[in-house]
Design a protein around this nucleic acid. Structure first.
Lengths: 141, 141
DNA sequence: TATAAACCTGAGTAAAATAGTCAAGTATAT
DNA sequence: ATATACTTGACTATTTTACTCAGGTTTATA
C-alpha cells in the first residue's frame, strides 16, 4: 500500500497555495519552483482540483489559482478524491450478491477491509488544509 | 493509495489456515481451492511468511503449513511486513539533512505523512489474526 | 493592439510495479 | 516406489505511474 505522487503533490501544492492565497492568485509556475514539481504535472493536477471546485482559476497575465472554499472546509478527503487517490482495499464491494473472488459468500476478510477503509478515511476527513497551514507556520516560529 | 493483492491474499490465506490449523497441517492446494488464489502465487507468498516465522512448513505427503506463533500474537503489521506491503507515504525519510524533493528544508507536508503512517500502522498493530478468525466465526452463527 | 504570462487539454510514453506463470527441483508419508 | 506437497528462481504480460509534449485559449498591460 502506498500513496502516489499525485496525491502528495496535490496536497503540497495546495498548502503552498493556501499560504499565499490571501494576497493574489498564485501561479502554477511559482508553485512549481517553490515545491519542485513539474509545471506540466501541476497543470494536470489543478485541472482536477478545479473540476471538483477546490480551486478556482483566473486566466491571463497575473492570473493563477485561488482556493474556491475556505481552507478550513477543504479536507484531505476532498483533495484525494479530486485526484483519484482513493483508499481502495478490495474489489468486492458493489457486487453485493456475488461476494468476493467469484465465491458465493463474502471473503473471509471482507469486513476487515471495510474497517481499514473507514479508519483511513476518518483521518482524511478530519484533517483540513487549514490544519496543515497552521501546523506549518507554527513550526516556523 | 491501494492495497495490493499480495497483501490481501496473504491475510485471506492465513485466516483460512488459522481456522484449520488445530487439526492438521493445511496444504496450499486446499487454500488455493477454497480461496480461489493461484497455487503458484500462494507459494511465493508463503515462502515470505515462512522466512518471517509466521508459518512453519511440513514437507511430504500430508504436509502443509501450520502457524508458527499463536494467532493472537500474529498482528496484521507482521503479515504486511512479511510480504513487503508497507505503508509508504513519502520518500523523504532517511535523508534527514537533505529534506524532501532536494530542498534544504522538510517539505510542507512532511509531518502529515508521518502522522498518516502512524494512524494506519496503529490499526495494523492492534488487529491480530485471532481477531479475524473470531470475527468470522461469529458471523457464521 | 501586440505580446507575454498564464491557464487549458489531450495524447503519448518510458519506467516501474503488479500479479502472476513456468520449470525444475527436494523431502517424506504411505 | 510414488504421489503429495513444499522450494526456488527466472520469466513475462499487463497495468499503473509519473510524467512530457504539443498544441491551444484567455486576458492584463505596455
Amino acid at each position: 500500500m502506498k500513496l502516489t505522487s499525485k496525491g502528495r503533490y496535490a496536497v503540497m501544492a495546495l498548502v503552498d497555495l493556501a499560504r499565499f492565497d490571501n494576497i493574489n492568485p498564485v501561479s502554477l509556475r511559482d508553485i512549481s519552483l517553490r515545491q519542485g514539481i513539474s509545471l506540466d504535472y501541476l497543470e494536470q493536477i489543478f485541472s482536477k482540483l478545479r473540476k471538483k471546485e477546490i480551486v478556482q482559476s483566473i486566466r491571463g497575465t497575473q492570473g493563477g489559482y485561488i482556493l474556491k472554499r475556505k481552507a478550513k472546509e477543504i479536507k484531505l478527503t476532498n483533495i484525494f478524491d479530486a485526484v483519484d487517490e482513493k483508499v481502495k482495499t478490495v474489489q468486492c464491494k458493489k457486487e453485493s450478491k456475488k461476494g468476493c473472488n467469484g465465491k458465493s459468500t463474502k471473503c473471509l476478510t471482507h469486513n476487515l477491509w471495510d474497517e481499514l477503509e473507514n479508519h483511513i478515511n476518518n483521518f482524511f476527513e478530519e484533517k483540513s488544509l487549514e490544519d496543515l497551514v497552521k501546523d506549518n507556520s507554527e513550526r516556523r516560529i
